[in-house]
Design a binder for these strands. Structure first.
Lengths: 194, 194
DNA sequence: CGAATTAATCTACCCCTGGTAACATATTTA
DNA sequence: TAAATATGTTACCAGGGGTAGATTAATTCG
C-alpha cells in the first residue's frame, strides 16, 4: 500500500485544502502513512516538489493543446494557450503556489526556475524551428522561451494575489505584450528597472 | 553600535562570501553582534529580505538611469537598461539569489514577487503614461509591467545558472523579444506550455 | 507446520534554523 | 550615589526536514 502516485495525489489533496505551506508530516498523514514511508517512496522534499511540478506542467500542456484547437490565427492560438494556462493555475492555485514557492538549500535558483525548465525547453525547440523556417537566427530561442515563461509566471502570480480584473483581461494583455511587444508604444525614456 | 545600515551591509558581505543560503546567525556574527540585536534592529527574516531587496532594486534603477543616457532611440534605451540590469545581477549574483529565493510561510507568493513589486509599480506608471500619450488604453500597464519584469527575471536567472553565452547576447535577445514580440515569426502551432 | 530470514512500517529521535524570554551590563539622569 | 533606562548576552523554545533502530508482517525453507 502507498503507491507513489497515491502519495502524490494525497499531497495535492492536502495542499488544496490547507494551502501551500504544508508540512511533510501533514502529507504523510493525509495518505494515512508515516513520514519514513513517504520519504522512501518519494525521496526528499525537493523530489516531491519536482514530481508535483511535473504533473502540473503536464496538465497545463494538455489544457493548452486542447485550447489551441480551432484557433483562427497564430495570434489567436497564443491567446487561447495563455487563457488556458491562467484557467488551470487559477483553478488549482494552492498547488501552483506550493510548486513554485517552496525553496531548498540545494537549489539556490529557486523551484520556480525548475518548473520553468519543463515548459521552456519544449517551447524553445518550437521557437527555434519556427525561426529557422522563417530564415531567422534561432539562437534567441532559449532566451525567449525563458522570457515568455517568466512573463506569464510573474503576471499570473501578481494577478492571483490581487485579482484586479477578470482572467480574460489578463490573457488579453499578455497576448498583446508577447505578440506585438513594446514597439507599438515606444516609451520615450524607458527607465525600466529590475 | 550596530546601526541598521551596518547590519544590512554585513548581511550583504556574508551573502556575497558564503552564498545565498546563509543563516541569521551568520549574518549577526559577521556584524560582530548577537542574534537578538539583529532582530531588534531589522525585524524578522522577511524584513531583512525586504530591506536588501529594496537596496538591490535601487542599485538596478540607478544603473539603468545612468545606462540610458545618450540612447539613440527608444529601442536602444531599452537595450541599455536591460544590459545594465544583467550586469548588476551578474556582479552580485549571490545577493540577487538571496533576495529572490528566500521564501517565508507568511508570504506564500514568494519573495521574488515582492522584489518585482518594487520594479513593476513605477514601470507600470511609465507605461500607462506613454500609452495615454499615444492614445492607447493604459489598462494593460500593470500586466505588462509584471510581464516584463518576469521575463527579465526568469531569463536572467536561467542565464546565471547556465551562462550559455555572453551577457550582451542575453540583453540583445531580451530586447528583441520585448520590443518586437513574437509576431515577426508567428509560431504555427503555439503549444506554449507552463 | 514451525523456524528463520527478509521486507515493510512505526516510534522515537536528531539537527538545524528562526525567533524570543529572562537575565546581565553599561549609561544616562536626578 | 542611586535609580532608571538603554543595550547586550546567554540560554532556551518551536517547528520542520530527515533518519536510525526497534517492531511487526510476510515469505521462504527445512
Amino acid at each position: 500500500m502507498a503507491d507513489r502516485d497515491q502519495l502524490l495525489e494525497a499531497a495535492e489533496t492536502v495542499i488544496r485544502r490547507n494551502g501551500p505551506d504544508v508540512t511533510m508530516e501533514a502529507i504523510a498523514a493525509q495518505a494515512t502513512v508515516t513520514k519514513p514511508i513517504l520519504y522512501r517512496n518519494i525521496g526528499d522534499k525537493d523530489a516531491l516538489v519536482t514530481a508535483l511540478a511535473e504533473r502540473f506542467v503536464d496538465r497545463i500542456n494538455v489544457a493548452g493543446s486542447v485550447a489551441v484547437i480551432g484557433a483562427e490565427s497564430a495570434r489567436d492560438g497564443l491567446r487561447r494557450v495563455i487563457g488556458s494556462l491562467v484557467a488551470v493555475v487559477e483553478a488549482d492555485r494552492n498547488v501552483f503556489l506550493y510548486v513554485t514557492s517552496v525553496g531548498s538549500s540545494t537549489n539556490p535558483f529557486g523551484e520556480a526556475l525548475r518548473l520553468a525548465d519543463r515548459s521552456a525547453q519544449p517551447l524553445a525547440e518550437q521557437l527555434a524551428a519556427q525561426r529557422r523556417a522563417d530564415g531567422l537566427d534561432p539562437a534567441v530561442a532559449l532566451t525567449w522561451a525563458y522570457g515568455i515563461v517568466g512573463a506569464l509566471h510573474f503576471a499570473t502570480m501578481w494577478w492571483l494575489r490581487n485579482e484586479p480584473f477578470e482572467p480574460a483581461q489578463l490573457a488579453d494583455h499578455l497576448t498583446e505584450l508577447l505578440w506585438s511587444g513594446l514597439s507599438a508604444a515606444p516609451p520615450r525614456k524607458p527607465r525600466k528597472p529590475r
